[in-house]
Write a protein that binds this DNA or RNA. Structure first.
Lengths: 209, 209
DNA sequence: TCATAAACGGAATATATATTCCACTTTATT
DNA sequence: AATAAAGTGGAATATATATTCCGTTTATGA
């Protein structure tokens, strides 16, 4: 009775590369369900944060609760799996901006994009900020990877004198998180996001004189 | 059996002016308990946010759960009562800065103070940002009052050309909330708050050239 | 001091939801 | 087609906590 189908949360997102066999080759129907669950969970988490009921995800995904739990033994683990994707995308995006001609623009474009994307995605917000959950694993995962690339992006921008020198990646990360949260929490006044982002960016720039 | 001791949440904080009789003159022990509950709730909410159990508050306040519920029929109402105090303080503080010589400094001093105070107070954060709860009543109450004074403070600062003209009180409020949340959520890197606040303030300033 | 209404305490109740369990299906293998 | 292994659904369980209920205690005014 010793169930050990519990894969570690970070190595499994279900290797899309159809050729490779994957963790242990799931049965075809199982793999399909897994994808459905992840997709559904993503949209729910993004829209409503961690408070969605597992039952609702299961229903919408067209599977039973039990199936969700077979794949993700815990709500938290499901969340982690969902977030792990997003994280990857963010990091990749940052990396692709690392060899941009204008380090300053690369930097500002990146934080703008992260903020705009995040403001529409409660799941990401929760993951980045640690709101709503403890998030041992993911949090540190995100922090490490994202802080790294962000740090590089920032360093280049600072070297090219586009960004003030007295701040670090932590500041930037905090500012992004805060801005995302602020936008998310505010009544949806039109124009708010743009205005706020502009304030942040201006505050980060080196001063003219 | 029709209990109607349910006072409206905003008119009752227990009128300190000992001379006036108050809402309906509580029995002396009842009044004492009410204060204890409010005080205890404040510190708990500030430290841990809305997730504290009512039972814990009751215990720490030295009363039974029933007594808490007699005074505040709902966890949410208790929270509202607690927040109402803080709100009042914030508004008063803003008002007292309205006739400061230097409108710019008054403005920046105020948002700095709110941010620094808020970052240590999860209750305020929750109330301001709407995190963790719906907060119909308080939210709008805070919004209205605080937005008002904040607007005045901002207007003066803008007239004196200390703050860029293209933003409104909503932006400022969102920025404050975001900053508070960012600081609160970040691991406590020393110096983070100062650095972040400085970025925000710089971003709000009119530009030199 | 007594009677009475007000207030109290905390066990019991209600509710919401995460998680488990297992009899039943479906897939893969022969 | 038959069988074993893998996977499934969803009722049942476990748990956490907000809220109610009511017998007991306490302040107050005569």
């Amino acid at each position: 009775m010793n169930e050990d189908h519990t894969r570690t949360p970070l190595d499994d997102s279900l290797s899309q590369n159809s050729s490779t066999v994957g963790p242990k080759s799931l049965r075809v129907d199982a793999r399909r369900n897994r994808v459905r669950i992840l997709d559904t969970a993503l949209s729910f988490f993004a829209a409503e944060g961690l408070s969605v009921r597992i039952e609702e995800i299961a229903q919408q995904a067209g599977v039973g609760i039990g199936t969700v739990y077979r794949n993700f033994p815990t709500k938290e683990l499901l969340f982690e799996a969902v977030i792990h994707r997003y994280q990857q995308k963010l990091v990749e995006e940052a990396e692709s901006l690392l060899d941009h001609d204008d380090p300053g623009e690369a930097f500002f474009r990146y934080i703008t994009r992260v903020i705009e994307g995040g403001a529409a995605n409660k799941a990401l917000t929760a993951a980045l900020s640690g709101t709503e959950i403890d998030m041992e694993t993911v949090a540190s995962g995100i922090s490490d990877n994202l802080r790294d690339v962000l740090g590089k992006l920032l360093a280049r921008a600072q070297q090219s004198d586009a960004v003030r020198a007295d701040i670090g990646a932590d500041h930037v990360k905090a500012l992004m998180v805060g801005t995302i949260l602020a936008i998310e929490k505010s009544a949806d006044e039109i124009g708010l996001p743009v205005g706020i982002i502009s304030v942040i960016c201006d505050g980060l720039r080196t001063k003219p004189i």
